[in-house]
Nucleic acid binder design. Structure first.
Length: 787
DNA sequence: TGCCACGCCCTTTTT
DNA sequence: GGGCGTGGCA
């Protein structure tokens, strides 16, 4: 499978003399082999983009198992996504056998810690059936705390409050450790305290707790739980180490304290989660805490063409503070990186479609084509365009399936069954479908619960004592109690999928939707069936992995699922944010929205240097995802959130080496207005156009009208090419598509028979073909025959 | 209590 | 552009 995660095998291989014979590890270059063979003590691997990192980690684990005879269940490998974890497990199963793949601990920080907490969490006061609150649940808790404390939600936006709380927790700090500098801080401390109380009462944790509580298990060592956990793993490996936060780092150091067999792999140039608490100093300063660490640098890129690598280097070059690395490649230069000026986001989308069609005509599988953007809001226009011309696509992230109301309701039911103390969930389902339990009743029930110091579910059980609730309402509440009790009795025997099915029936949820008789309700019903199906899939997978399927297991998986985990291996074009693309690779990458303010993105608050550095790294990540073809588009104007933005080309475009790029414009864009990318340093202020000077960037409004014949004025050393492109009717590539596809055989007078590697649509159709004995040759299509 | 309509808000990136 | 909350009405 040409998985996006699978690095292309190195084609120039030094024979690693004296390397232990890890199964299938032949063909590694020297630094790779060194990283694989290293056994005891800390190891830091700087893995440049496309340097075969995944391969190294996998072989290293295989090496530990096969050569060092480490039992697989004593090895922990931490990956960045569940998808990456699954792929690593699959590779190891192939390399070392099924049992090894099964026994290994492979997962994300969050999934791994959740699993550990089910086992060791009791030492820090967590019951085994705890539930994980997602961002939405967390927000509900904050909102309720705000209302309880009679604080203004405008003054203390829940989002802001939550982000403060999370920032503290990522640093392993509690409400008591906060610096209080203002009355706002004071309120936050109180909210924080209340938030923690609520979670504890509900036997729930948030994402930060998953890590933080395991750190507590390790550091507090109550009842020896920390020691027991420490003895569990002999070797720990971590991928994407540049994006770990402080709590995760604490977890790793505490876990490996006794043996220090910690192998971390990452690339500080690809650190893009600072906003989420990631601290690039973890990798840059690793040697401080682990002075004895062996450091290996993987600097050869096997993934991308020479021009793409040099474009990437151009973008990351101006970055400050990076660990010095020399990324290089032995790959052929390949085609130029295309910088395409477009008129607006529709024109941009039209060009995206054109490139997708070209690639498809060249024989590229659609799943090898990706369209990136900086923010989700950019996806809508692209989606509409793709749909209008029937190009199948999948979109990663954005509005998620699991955010739909009916899905959240169904999940809330399951969570209440697993953990009745979860008030957030009980509130959600108590009147869904409508049972005549309104806000008034709910408030009274909540007050009753608070006055007795019990959960709302317990209050439900004792509702007959609640005199403040009217008789009729009490009866309805008792009905819910009976309903839940009945369902819980069944939950012990029914399978998860079966259980959801019963929930939807017994609660009358299906009937209520069916009665609506609307297309919307119809769609909701379908979504619910899909959810039942996904529980079924989970059962199959859990059984295959040797686990017993359970509601807990399913819920945990759902909550900890990343967007990319949903990515299917189908033959579709992929749309995603650049963040989502981390760790993936594609044959063809379209990077859209390369304008100042879009990328680098400027949000509400003006970002500082650190933010700009991160945007730069983000651009670096985006570029290095591409293997063969990279197209970067920018627009003159863009509608965003209802307003029109005037953009000038991103500063990152000016950082690309001239000989690696080719500048193009769509016909719609090229008409009348001209613009050149300024290679002089750009001003950071977006609003002010730079002073006009010959050859420099011209703002669209200030460009003087010019007769078409007068020729285009070129910035020094640049080419400006108009691509003939517009309507669907004219969609070149069709003419050459049939006989000349990638992989088809061709005959040339001088070079003999060869195989087409690539089709190019220049002024005249041409192909790059491989001829045995001659190598790759670019030849005009008219000089070729079919053999 | 439930439904509908209006208006307001915001609008990065995600485990 | 859209999601959410609020407020008014049946």
């Amino acid at each position: 499978m040409a998985s996006p995660l699978a690095p292309t095998p190195p084609h120039e291989v030094g024979s690693p003399g004296g390397t232990p014979q890890t199964p299938g590890a032949q063909g590694l270059n020297d630094p790779q082999a060194e990283a694989v063979a290293h056994v005891g003590g800390p190891l830091l691997v700087f893995a440049g983009a496309g340097s075969g990192k995944t391969r190294v980690i996998t072989y290293r684990v295989a090496n530990l198992v096969a050569c060092a005879r480490v039992p697989p269940y004593r090895i922990l490998a931490v990956t960045f996504t569940n998808k990456a974890a699954g792929e690593m497990r699959a590779r190891l199963s192939r390399l070392c056998g099924e049992e090894v793949g099964k026994d290994l601990w492979v997962g994300t920080f969050h999934a791994t810690c959740a699993k550990l907490l089910r086992r060791f969490g009791e030492s820090v006061g967590l019951e085994r059936n705890f539930v994980i609150y997602d961002t939405d649940d967390q927000k509900q808790v904050v909102v309720r705390a705000l209302r309880e404390m009679d604080l203004d939600e405008k003054r203390y936006p829940p989002r802001m409050v939550l982000s403060r709380i999370h920032r503290e927790k990522q640093e392993c700090r509690g409400a008591g450790d906060m610096n209080v500098d203002s009355y706002v801080d004071e309120a936050i401390v109180k909210l924080f305290t209340r938030y923690e109380e609520q979670l504890k009462a509900a036997n729930a944790v948030d994402f930060e707790d998953l890590i933080g509580k395991v750190v507590r298990v390790l550091e507090e060592n109550a009842g020896g739980a920390g020691d027991a956990l420490r003895r569990k793993f002999e070797y720990v490996l971590v991928d994407e180490f540049q994006d770990t936060n402080h709590a995760q780092y604490r977890f790793l150091t505490a876990l490996t304290r006794d043996h220090r067999n910690l192998c971390v792999v990452g690339d500080d140039d690809q650190s893009i989660y600072r906003w989420r608490g990631a601290d690039v100093r973890n990798i840059r300063g690793f040697k401080k805490d682990f002075p004895e660490a062996t450091v290996v640098k993987l600097e050869q890129n096997y993934r991308s063409s020479g021009r793409i690598v040099s474009a990437a280097l151009g973008v990351i070059g101006p970055s400050k503070e990076r660990v010095p690395k020399d990324l290089w490649t032995a790959n052929a230069p390949g085609r130029k990186v295309e910088i395409v000026a477009t008129k607006d986001e529709r024109d941009e989308a039209a060009h995206v479609i054109r490139v997708i069609r070209e690639a498809r005509d060249e024989g590229v599988d659609p799943k090898e084509i990706a369209v990136f953007y900086r923010i989700h809001a950019q996806s809508r226009v692209l989606e509409e365009a793709l749909r209008s011309v029937n190009i199948p696509y999948q979109i990663i992230g954005g509005t998620k399936f699991y955010e739909r109301a009916e899905i959240k309701d169904a999940i809330a039911y399951l969570r209440v069954l697993v953990n009745p103390r979860s008030d957030v969930d009980l509130r959600r389902i108590i009147n869904s479908p409508a049972r005549g339990i309104g806000d008034t009743t709910l408030d009274r029930l909540a007050a009753f619960a608070t006055s007795r110091g019990i959960s709302m579910h317990e209050a439900l059980g004792r509702v007959d004592e609640a005199e403040e609730i009217a008789g009729a309402a009490r009866k309805r509440l008792a009905g819910v109690r009976e309903l839940l009790a009945g369902l819980r009795a069944e939950a012990s025997t029914a399978s998860p999928a079966d259980m959801l099915d019963r929930v939807l029936d017994r609660t009358g949820y299906r009937t209520a939707l069916g009665a609506e008789n609307s297309p919307e309700a119809e769609a909701r019903l379908e979504n619910l069936e899909e959810l039942v199906g996904s529980l079924g899939d989970y059962e199959v997978e859990a059984n295959a992995a040797g686990d017993t399927p359970s509601l807990e297991g399913y819920l945990e998986r759902v909550t900890l699922q990343a967007d990319v985990d949903q990515m299917k291996d189908a033959s579709r074009v992929t749309l995603m944010t650049v963040h989502g693309a981390k760790g993936l690779e594609f044959e063809v990458v379209l990077l859209t929205g390369m304008e100042e303010e879009m990328f680098p993105y400027r949000g509400m608050e003006p970002g500082g240097d650190q933010e700009m550095e991160e945007e730069r790294r983000l651009a670096y990540v985006a570029i290095t995802r591409a293997r063969n073809r990279l197209v970067m588009t920018h627009t003159d104007t863009r509608q965003l959130f209802g307003n029109t933005r005037w953009g000038r080309p991103s500063r990152f475009l000016s950082d690309l080496p001239e000989d690696a790029v080719e500048q193009l414009a769509t016909r719609a864009r090229g008409n009348g207005v001209e613009r050149y990318i300024d290679r002089a340093p750009l001003r950071s202020e977006f609003e002010a156009p730079p002073p006009r000077s010959p050859g420099a960037f011209r703002h669209p409004q200030s460009a003087p009208p010019r007769a078409p014949e007068s020729g285009r004025q070129h910035a020094p050393g640049e080419r400006f090419v108009d691509t003939e492109f517009f309507s669907d009717a004219h969609h070149d590539g069709d003419e050459v598509a049939a006989p000349l596809r990638r992989g088809s055989r061709v005959l040339h007078e001088r070079f003999g028979e060869g195989e087409v590697r690539r089709v190019e649509n220049a002024a005249e159709p041409a192909v790059v073909a491989f001829f045995p004995g001659w190598g790759e040759k670019k030849i005009l299509a008219r000089f070729l025959k079919t053999p």
